[in-house]
């Protein structure tokens, strides 16, 4: 009696499961006959290894909306924050490399993470860096209405009072800290004399600078734009070789007399290295044309982000080059863990 009931309930459960499976299967029917297998035929997960609301998250959502519409398949943005981006990255690397789990990454979840870690949880070889969406400079920021009007003012003051310089950064092994170290090297100031003030990110750092609690912040243009436009922060210089279109009046470091310090904040798309080459190509070419589409670039502009597409080769070279430089810095200044 009992077992009969049990089996009938099993059957009910199984039926329910089948019905549900059917629902999700219907959408898969259409496909085109090409040499490469059709892609995408089902929703894609775009994993963002940071909490919602940050720069990379917003850009990724814009990408997901644009490409999702173009391909006619939903691209779900899935935030998996934690451990400086390692948690989300690892979740992509352990998922099936079928091209339906895609990673949105940036400098802090790759170069900074890998350069700072003794036992990195993954290596660059695990990732197929497909292309960048955003590639923009950092800005040297100080409080408005203070004693620093130009980069030269700051340089002179720091040379005279290295012990009084405080700068905000998300940690010892972060691109911001590396940029500050390179700047101090360039103007001949001993890094061990200045003080790093660790923080949680832009929403923690920027009010501290605007309130005069911390002297210097190095923040990417997206994060900086709000309080700069509000007149609370003064941008002294950008870390790119050319001026930023978002801050056309702000000189570059080189133009301010600080030589050989270039760094950038990029956001891009990566796949696990085992993913099919055809999928990587599809993403690459779609992103290339996306960044030429005025509708998308206008969207990036509203996010205060500076779009730039670097193809897989350029992207990989950029990251490898940065990683080598930063690993060297970490060794030299013992910043690692």
């Amino acid at each position: 009696m009992r077992s009969k009931k049990f089996y009938s309930s099993l059957a009910v459960g199984a039926l329910a499961v089948l019905a549900l499976a059917g629902c999700s299967g219907v959408a898969n029917a259409s496909s085109t006959a090409n040499a490469a297998p059709a892609y995408p035929t089902r929703p894609i997960q775009l994993v963002v290894p940071f909490a919602p609301g940050g720069g990379t998250d917003l850009v990724s959502r814009a990408v997901a909306a644009y490409l999702g519409q173009k391909w006619g398949k939903t691209i779900n943005v899935v935030n998996k924050p934690g451990a400086g981006g390692a948690t989300g990255t690892e979740s992509v690397l352990t998922a099936s490399p079928d091209g339906y789990t895609v990673l949105a990454d940036n400098g802090s979840s790759t170069e900074a993470l890998l350069s700072g870690a003794n036992k990195p949880p993954f290596t660059l070889k695990d990732l197929n860096l497909v292309g960048t969406v955003v590639n923009q400079p950092f800005v040297f920021l100080v409080k408005s209405g203070g004693q620093f009007k130009t980069m030269q003012d700051l340089d002179a003051w720091v040379k005279a009072n290295p012990g009084q310089l405080t700068f905000g950064s998300t940690g010892l092994s972060s691109v911001q800290t590396y940029t500050v170290i390179e700047w101090l090297q360039s103007i001949g100031v001993d890094y061990s004399k200045v003080h790093m003030v660790p923080n949680n990110g832009a929403s923690d750092l920027l009010p501290q600078i605007a309130g005069g609690h911390v002297v210097l912040g190095v923040q990417d243009v997206t994060g900086a734009a709000g309080l700069v436009k509000a007149g609370q922060l003064t941008p002294l210089a950008v870390t790119s070789t050319t001026r930023s279109p978002l801050f056309p009046n702000v000189p570059t470091l080189a133009q301010s007399g600080v030589k050989n310090v270039v760094s950038s904040f990029w956001s891009g798309i990566a796949l696990p290295s085992g993913a099919p080459a055809s999928v990587a190509q599809k993403w690459g070419s779609a992103m290339a044309s996306m960044l030429k589409d005025p509708a998308f670039t206008a969207k990036l502009k509203t996010l205060n982000a500076q779009g730039q597409y670097l193809d897989s080769a350029q992207f990989t070279a950029l990251v490898k080059n940065n990683l080598a430089t930063y690993t060297q810095l970490v060794k030299q200044y013992k910043l690692g863990q």
């Binding site: 920027l206 009010p207 605007a210 709000g226 436009k229 509000a230 609370q232």
Partner: peptide
């Protein structure tokens, strides 16, 4: 609204919402 600083996680996401619509919080 005035500084673009979200004081809690839900507001951080609302800020994202504002920015998606191209609105830059700040006194302006």
């Amino acid at each position: 609204f005035t500084l673009g600083i979200p004081s809690s996680p839900p507001l951080a996401i609302l800020l994202a919402g504002l920015m998606i619509y191209g609105l830059q919080p700040g006194p302006n």
